[in-house]
Every structure is written in structure tokens, then in C-alpha cells.
Design a protein around this nucleic acid. Structure first.
Length: 910
RNA sequence: AGGCGCGUAGCUCAGCUUGGUUAGAGCGCCACCUUGACAUGGUGGAGGUCGUUGGUUCGAGUCCAAUCGUGCCUACCA
């Protein structure tokens, strides 16, 4: 083995060998563990969120696999309708062709071509972080099988009257020219104005002033609304006004929805272009006047000179015209929130269109019920509130999109516009008894991407296709995902599974935080603060990083800033840390919080940890070079440290179990880190150096193998590689670690008080080291130490392990049977023993005495605090006795320490 | 406007569910150490009035109330 661990040399080879040996396929076993991967977009490249999520999943998957279960991790990708279509349109544009000129079929061909070309790149990246998914079952939402399920479910929902077609107001993105979900709309706060428009009232000298943020929609107004109890205006209710330029007469109506305090107290009503006005329009039976074409151009319902102009460009011109007509009087500054398309940045227009909707009422009720009944559990639990809140206020889901990439809606129309829903044209003709003479054309819309995603847990698990697979792995055990798609995805999967499989899709939902940059900002290509997980694994030079980060900036203004920050944060680029370090880091960060700030410094720490394990293994291999390992442990010859490390390992196994159960991967990582480094390497291995007996060798191999196994789910590459060495030496029998079994507890007998005996020895060593360091004794100086002990077991332990103590502290220790009176020694007093160190004339006494005085004062103040408690009558009366005793014994211990320090001080002052 | 998080060491975070040792970890910092697994290392150390105020309690980082700061989500008054 190399002196240093080099992830580059091992990771890819190891992954290939796992695949070659088909290690990711489910084994035969009575108990199962199954999980579906939230399918990433085919457009995507692996980002930190994926890497984090996959790590968490993979830890659990590997753990359960080592428990001998039949583990299925079902992977796949999502076709991501709009996102993918945009990417492909861009590609086509870049090759000099206008994508709009391509036929639907040709365009879809192009998408498939592109999907084959790059759609699988994310899968290859996923493999780099070690995900042990069953790639033989890889699925894509547009696969034939999945598409068939999508169609069938649509048809069934339609036949059940749960899907219907309707003319409704939807969020329209004029750039994409499609409806989008309100979840894809972000509200942006903008400094804007309230525009006051003054209309003359017909057959009256009265004027009425409306306040609006969108003057350009006045072409679509069909009423002006005032509050009936508003004495300024209510007498005008029932009269009419005439809209300027288009000379349309519209009524003044009354409704107490109008806030009298706001603006002018008069509200213009545009039922076809505003969600609130839509409701008012329905209520008062107003005219719905659409003024917009699908591309955002104004239609023939507006004044002639504005026909064809884009609604987002006309405001200034229109205001000028209205001003000259004396209608526009003033504008007042107003902070407004504007709906903006998440993908395009374009202001979203509510638009009346024919769309397909899914009635969500009953589905939502079932979705709420299974979580309320704890059949499905959120981890952490509080996320269920978010889930309930959404489902309780759910509206019908607009499932149609006016794009071409996706599952085409299985509906056909005859020339009269009658709708027929069915599998294909032939199916429809048979079902509805339509002759070939009637020409049918299919709906051009496709389904919202999330429609097929909602079916993912059962559509990928061979629902209605392979009962054995479905029965075995569905429902899945767990879903791991981010809180940002609880609405988009989690809720819909639950509802659709309940509806169609009559079962929940998963028992638990582990919601993880969002990975942010080290300053807590969301990682975004347009901000230029993205860290690519592959760059952390493989490393990247500063130049390349700069290029990456500046190439997709939305705004060139930021460029210099991005360059400056990147240079500051990564002066030498990013070092190569390897997938294992990245994975360990993700586990350590996976606490209950909502945000995860990504800090490269921490990864470096975990890379070092990997190196530590590497070297510990290497050390053991060196020591046990020609050793014949004997399965099983010979406890007769083992010493207290051997027993102690077994005991600690048992705790480790128990911890791991506990932390997988409560999904505290951060505590899991910390507990492993602490044990391996601070107990195993710092103590057990150091101790073992002093005694390389056969028994010890056996314990060394036994213990490191357990550690490698326990660590494997988190850091699979390095552990598998080390395993190979152990396998070659004949120390383990299973050829591959991934197929080995997870350790169970040994439950070592408690006949020896191993922990406290080892703790005593460690304490002696720590005390000596500490005083040596504090008194600045050079490490090479051998110090004579005597120890007087008043506990028999400790006498024998110290005698037995005096060589060890000597080596670990560079002293010469001697156990004496009465207290030492020689003034050349300084003494350290403990409850069970007194240490005498011959270092008096090696040090600067005054300096040391000052240090000791400070420490005595500190300890005295703690004693003081405890005394206050103990002197408090109420404390003695009401506190439980073990707490009181704890305080008493604690006080005694500190007083002992003080005594020891005083005595040390006295010795020094002599 | 409501809802949900967060605020603990220079930085990143545990600890709060179920109140009780001298509040922990990693990184960083300081000193010393080229000790034969590892300098991606070893030994020792410094550093915190737990955002603020009040309350409950014998006892509060932990429970309650208020408040400030901060982040997110949902719904929005044109």
C-alpha cells in the first residue's frame, strides 16, 4: 500500500468491479429494502443536491445490503418537458436552423437524438460518487412502458370524471407559449407605481378614478367596482362609464371585496387577465374579454394602433395617449409583487385557454389521511405541516402544457370539436363506434412532466407488468428528497399511488436540506457560485474554475465580482479530494437544519480522515505481514485494551444502527470519526505498538475489519480497496466488502471493569503528558516518575503496562509502596494514586506557579458555585438525590484537583 | 399578512424532543515535536455572559412569553 491514499487510483476501478460482479442487483432474501431514486432531468449535470441525496440513499442502501436484505435501488431519469425542449431548441438554433420551422415529429426526433447523446451523462456522473443503484433496471419517463402507464392512467381518470377539459385562467408564459404551474411562478417584489385613471360617468357630471398597477389591461376591463358602503362612490353603482379609445360601455358594480382604504377605492375589473377579477367576473356575470394572443401580442379587442404589439412594451405609449385624453392623471410609487416565470424571467400573464385539469379534492383527502394516520411519515416530522397546508388548499391541477416534448394527451377531436379519449385512434374508433369517414386529430398538448413523475414509484416497479417484482418491492421503504419538491412531487406520488395501487408509495420520507455555498447562498450558475461535485472529487485548476463560473453568467456586470470571489475562495483551484471524502462530508452535514453550507475546509478534514483509515490499515498489514489470522478471538490471552476496543466497537455498531433508524447521518459520521481517530488510532494502535503478540495481531485484524465494514456504507471506495489487501492476505474470506455482512454486537462480558481500568491508565498517561507540555519539558528528555497507588487492581495494571506508559510519555515509571518524601520530585495527586515527577530543576518555577494559581482560582470558583447549590435548602429538599450526590462527588473531585495543584505549587516554591 | 427555520468558540455546526457533571466537535489559531501507519501526522493549549429581556423552576443553552436580527415558504390589495 502507498504511504498516502490516492482516490484517483482506486475509485473508478472499484466501481467497475462492483458492476462487473453485479453487486448492485438485489439478492434473494426474505426481507427487502427498496427505494426509488428521484429521477434527475436528462438535461442536467450532477449538482451538489444530487450528490448529497445520492450519498444519503447509498449509505442506507449499502447498509441494508450488508444486512443481507434483498435491496433494490431503482434508478432512472426524467424527461423534464419544458427544460429539455428549451435546451434542444437552443441547440438547433445554434446550428443555424429556426426550431419553429421543424415539424413536431422532426423536433421530437431531435430531442431523442440529443437524449441518447447526453441524456446518460448524469448517470455516469452519478456512478462517480459511488451510487450502487441497479442500473439494469434503469428507467426513463418517456420509455414505452412508462408512457403506456401514463396513457392508461389518464384515460382512467378521464373516464372517472377526475380529468376534464375546461376554459380557465392559467399562468401563461408568453416566451414559452405554454401554461405553467403556479409552483413554477416566482413572485418578485418590484418598485412600481399605482396609476390613477379617471373616467367620466355616463349621463352624469361625476368622475371616477381607478387605481391600477397594470394600466395596459384596461382594454380588457368589463366593470369598475366600488365598495357598496363607500359613501364617496356608492351612488354611482348601476351607472356606466365609457372606456376611452375603444369606447366600450362598462358598468359600475358594487362588491365589498373592494378595500376602501386602498388606492382610490375604485377597482377596475379585468376578468380575463387577473385571477381575482376572474372570480368577481364570474360572480357578477361580467363579460370576459381576452385582449392577448398566445405570443403576448395584443389582439383585435384593443385600440387599433396597439393591435399586435407586445403587452409588456406598450405601457409608456399607452399612458401618453391616456394622458393626452385627460384620463391618466398621476402615478404614485408603490411596491408591487409581480409574478415571473421561474425559467424565463418573463412576467406571467393570466390567460383564458382550453386546458386539461385534474380534480384534486378526493385525491387530496386521501393524501392527507395517510400522513395523518402515520402510514407515511416525514422525517423530520415538521415537514408534514407544509404538506398538509398545501393539500388543504389545493386547487385543480392543470396537467396540459403547450409544448411538444412529453407525453401527448391521448385525446382526439372530430371536426365538430367533440372529444374522444383513448389509447390511440383505432382504439377510439372502436370504443365510440366512429367510421373511418370521420376524421380525427389528436390534441397537440402534452402532459405536465410531474404527471409521469407522480407515477414513478409504481410505474418503475413493473406495476401491472411483473407482479413478482411489484409485490416484492412496492411500497418502497423510503423516499429521500429535498423540501423544495414536496408539492411538485411527494404529494402527487402519494395521491396517485393511493388512487391506482391502493397503497402508499413509501413508508418514510426523509427530507434533506438544500446545499448552499459557504456564505449560505443558493448555488446558481447565473450567480457564478456553483461548485461541481465532480470538481471536488477530481480537483480543478483555478483557471478552469474561473472559466466554468463565468461562462453561464446571466449578467456580465457580475463577472469581475465572480472572478474576485473565486480567486479569494480558491486561490489554487480545488484540490482532489475523492468521492469518499465528499460522501463523508455530506453525511456529516446532514443534520436536521434546512440549509447546508458547503465548506471545502471540512471536506479536506474528511479526506484526511480517509487517509487515517488507510494508514491504520496499512500499519496493521505491516505488523501482521506474515501472520496467519485465526478466525475468532482468543479472549484468554487478551489484555484489557483488547477487551476495551471490542467494547468500543460494540458501541460503534449500536450507534450506527441507532443513527440509521433516526436518520441522523451527521451524528453517525461524527461518532465514526471520533471513534476511529481518537480512540482506535490514537490509543489502541499506539498501545498495540508496545505489544505485538499473536493475540494482539488477531485483535488488530479483527478490529480493523469491523471498522472497514462499519465505514463502508459511507466511504465505499477506500474501504473496498483496503478490503482487497486483507482478502489477498487471507484475513477475510468474502471476496468483496460490498457483499459482506454488517457487524453485529459481540456483547463482551462485563466481568472486568474494562472501561474504567483503561481509563485509569489513559488518565495517568494524559496527566504526565500534560504536565510535561505545560512545564515545557523537551519531548526527548526522559523523566523519572514514581507512582504511589492505593487501589490494588491499578497496581497490577500499571505494573503490567509500565512499558507502555513509559513509551507513550517518554518517562521511566516506578511503582512505589509508600508516599515519596523526596523534595526533588513534584507530585500530582489523584483519587487513586499520586504521581511524582523528577522535573523540578528543569523548569522556570515562577512562570509555572503563576499558571497554577490561575487554575486554582478557576477551580475554586466552580467549587463556589457547587457550594451555593448545596447550601440552598430548597435544592436539597427538591432536587433528586442522584443529582445532589453528583454535585457532592463532583465537588470532592475538584477539591482534590485543587489540592493536587496546591501541592504542586508548594513543591515548586521550595 | 400568515406559516416555518435559524441565531451556541474566529468559521461551519452538534447539544434543546425528555431541564441537572466544569456546554462539545471539525476546521482555523498558538506552542512544541522530521517518534519506524499517517506532517493528509503527533502532543499540549488558548478561545463561548448559548441573540436580547422577562417568566416558570431548587436549577434554563434546553420549557414558556415577548423582542431583535436573519433566511425560506405560502397567500396576496388593485
Amino acid at each position: 500500500m502507498d504511504k498516502q491514499y490516492k482516490p484517483r487510483d482506486i475509485e473508478q476501478k472499484i466501481y467497475e468491479s462492483w458492476e462487473k460482479h453485479k453487486c448492485f442487483l438485489p439478492k434473494d432474501s426474505a426481507s427487502k429494502f427498496s427505494i426509488v431514486l428521484p429521477p434527475p432531468n436528462v438535461t442536467g449535470t450532477l449538482h451538489m443536491g444530487h450528490a448529497f441525496q445520492h450519498t444519503i440513499i447509498d449509505v442506507l442502501v449499502r447498509y441494508h445490503r450488508m444486512l443481507g436484505k434483498s435491496v433494490l435501488w431503482q434508478p432512472g431519469t426524467d424527461h423534464a418537458g419544458i427544460a429539455t425542449q428549451l435546451v434542444v431548441e437552443n441547440r438547433i438554433s445554434n446550428s443555424g436552423i429556426n426550431p419553429k420551422t421543424l415539424s413536431r415529429e422532426k423536433f421530437i426526433d431531435e430531442v431523442w437524438k440529443w437524449k441518447e447523446l447526453s441524456g446518460n451523462s448524469i448517470i455516469n456522473q452519478t456512478k462517480r460518487i459511488g451510487s450502487s443503484a441497479d442500473w439494469s433496471r434503469n428507467r426513463f419517463t418517456m420509455d414505452d412502458g412508462l408512457s403506456e402507464i401514463v396513457r392508461n392512467i389518464f384515460i382512467e381518470l378521464y373516464n372517472n370524471k377526475l380529468i376534464y377539459r375546461g376554459n380557465r385562467l392559467v399562468n401563461w408564459d408568453i416566451k414559452l407559449q405554454t401554461a405553467i404551474s403556479d409552483l413554477e411562478v416566482v413572485n418578485e417584489e418590484r418598485e412600481d407605481f399605482l396609476y390613477h385613471l379617471e373616467y367620466g360617468v355616463k349621463d352624469s357630471v361625476d368622475k371616477i378614478i381607478v387605481a391600477t398597477t397594470r394600466p395596459e389591461t384596461f382594454f380588457g376591463d368589463s366593470a369598475v367596482c366600488v365598495n357598496p358602503s363607500d359613501t364617496r362612490h356608492n351612488r354611482l353603482i348601476g351607472k356606466k362609464i365609457i372606456l376611452p379609445m375603444i369606447n366600450r360601455e362598462i358598468p359600475i358594480i358594487g362588491d365589498d371585496i373592494v378595500d376602501m382604504e386602498f388606492g382610490t377605492g375604485c377597482l377596475k375589473i379585468t376578468p380575463a387577465h387577473d385571477f381575482n377579477d376572474y372570480k368577481i367576473g364570474k360572480k357578477h356575470n361580467l363579460e370576459f374579454i381576452n385582449i392577448l394572443n398566445k405570443d403576448g401580442g395584443l389582439n383585435e379587442n384593443v385600440a387599433k394602433k396597439y393591435i399586435g404589439r407586445n403587452i409588456h412594451d406598450v405601457r409608456e405609449d399607452l399612458l401618453e395617449d391616456l394622458e393626452s385624453l385627460g384620463v391618466f392623471k398621476e402615478k404614485v410609487p408603490y411596491k408591487n409583487t409581480v409574478p415571473v416565470g421561474e425559467r424565463t424571467g418573463e412576467v406571467i400573464e393570466p390567460l383564458l385557454t382550453n386546458q386539461w385539469f385534474m380534480n384534486m379534492n378526493d385525491l387530496a383527502k386521501d393524501g392527507i389521511r395517510v400522513v395523518k394516520e402515520k402510514k407515511v411519515n416525514f422525517v423530520p416530522e415538521h415537514w408534514e405541516k407544509i404538506y398538509f397546508n398545501w393539500l388543504e388548499n389545493i386547487e385543480d391541477w392543470c396537467v396540459s402544457r403547450q409544448i411538444v416534448w412529453g407525453h401527448r394527451i391521448p385525446a382526439w377531436y372530430d371536426i365538430e370539436g367533440n372529444v374522444y379519449v383513448g389509447n390511440d385512434e383505432e382504439d377510439i374508433r372502436i370504443r365510440h363506434n366512429l367510421s373511418d369517414a370521420i376524421s380525427l386529430s389528436q390534441d397537440t398538448d402534452v402532459l405536465d412532466t410531474w404527471f409521469s413523475s407522480a407515477l414513478w414509484p409504481f410505474s418503475t416497479l413493473d406495476w401491472k407488468k411483473d407482479d413478482a417484482v411489484f409485490q416484492r418491492y412496492f411500497p418502497t421503504n423510503l423516499l429521500v428528497t429535498g423540501f423544495d419538491i414536496i408539492f411538485f412531487w411527494v404529494a402527487r406520488m402519494i395521491m396517485m399511488s393511493l388512487k391506482f395501487t391502493k397503497d402508499i408509495p413509501f413508508k418514510k420520507i426523509y427530507i434533506h436540506g438544500l446545499v448552499r455555498d459557504s456564505e449560505g447562498k443558493k448555488m446558481s450558475k447565473s450567480i457564478g457560485n456553483v461548485i461541481d461535485p465532480l470538481d471536488v472529487i477530481e480537483g480543478i485548476s483555478l483557471d478552469k474554475l474561473l472559466e466554468k463560473r463565468t461562462s453561464s453568467l446571466i449578467n456580465d456586470k457580475h463577472k469581475s465580482n465572480v472572478i474576485k470571489k473565486t480567486k479569494r475562495d480558491f486561490p489554487d483551484g480545488i484540490k482532489e479530494f475523492g468521492a469518499d471524502a465528499l460522501r463523508f462530508n455530506f453525511c456529516a452535514m446532514a443534520s436536521t437544519g434546512r440549509d447546508i453550507n458547503f465548506d471545502l475546509k471540512r471536506i479536506e478534514g474528511y479526506r484526511n480522515f480517509c487517509n487515517k483509515i488507510w494508514n491504520a490499515s496499512r500499519f496493521i498489514l505491516l505488523i501482521c505481514k506474515d501472520y496467519q489470522y485465526k478466525e475468532g478471538l482468543n479472549s484468554k490471552d487478551s489484555n484489557i485494551f483488547d477487551k476495551w476496543i471490542l467494547y468500543k466497537l460494540d458501541n460503534m455498531v449500536a450507534d450506527f444502527k441507532k443513527y440509521t433508524k433516526n436518520y441522523r447521518f451527521d451524528l453517525m459520521a461524527n461518532s465514526i470519526y471520533d471513534f476511529v481517530w481518537n480512540e482506535y488510532c490514537d490509543w489502541y494502535l499506539e498501545i498495540a505498538k508496545n505489544n505485538t503478540s499473536e493475540t494482539t495481531k488477531n485483535y488488530l485484524i479483527f478490529s480493523i475489519v469491523r471498522i472497514i465494514k462499519i465505514c463502508h456504507p459511507i466511504i465505499p471506495f477506500i474501504t473496498e480497496d483496503i478490503w482487497k489487501e486483507f482478502y489477498n492476505k487471507g484475513f477475510v474470506t468474502e471476496q468483496m466488502l460490498i457483499n459482506s455482512s454488517f457487524p453485529t454486537q459481540i456483547r463482551i462480558s462485563k466481568e472486568y471493569d474494562v472501561e474504567s481500568r483503561v481509563e485509569n491508565i489513559r488518565d495517568i498517561i494524559r496527566k504526565i503528558r500534560k504536565i510535561r507540555a505545560e512545564l515545557s519539558i523537551h519531548p526527548k528528555e526522559i523523566v523519572s516518575v514514581k507512582i504511589f497507588i492505593n487501589e490494588s487492581i491499578l497496581v497490577s495494571d500499571v505494573n503490567e503496562h509500565s512499558g507502555l506508559i513509559n513509551n507513550m510519555t517518554n518517562i521511566k515509571i516506578e511503582v512505589i509502596d509508600q508516599k515519596e518524601e523526596n523534595l526533588d520530585y513534584i507530585d500530582l495527586i489523584d483519587e487513586n494514586y499520586t504521581l511524582y515527577l523528577k522535573i523540578k530543576n528543569m523548569i522556570d518555577a515562577n512562570e509555572e506557579m503563576a499558571k497554577i494559581d490561575k487554575k486554582i482560582t478557576d477551580l475554586a470558583s466552580i467549587v463556589n458555585k457547587i457550594d451555593q447549590k448545596l447550601n440552598n435548602k430548597k435544592f436539597i429538599e427538591r432536587a433528586p438525590s442522584d443529582i445532589i450526590n453528583q454535585n457532592i462527588s463532583n465537588k470532592a473531585k475538584i477539591e482534590n484537583d485543587i489540592l493536587s495543584l496546591r501541592s504542586l505549587r508548594d513543591t515548586l516554591s521550595d
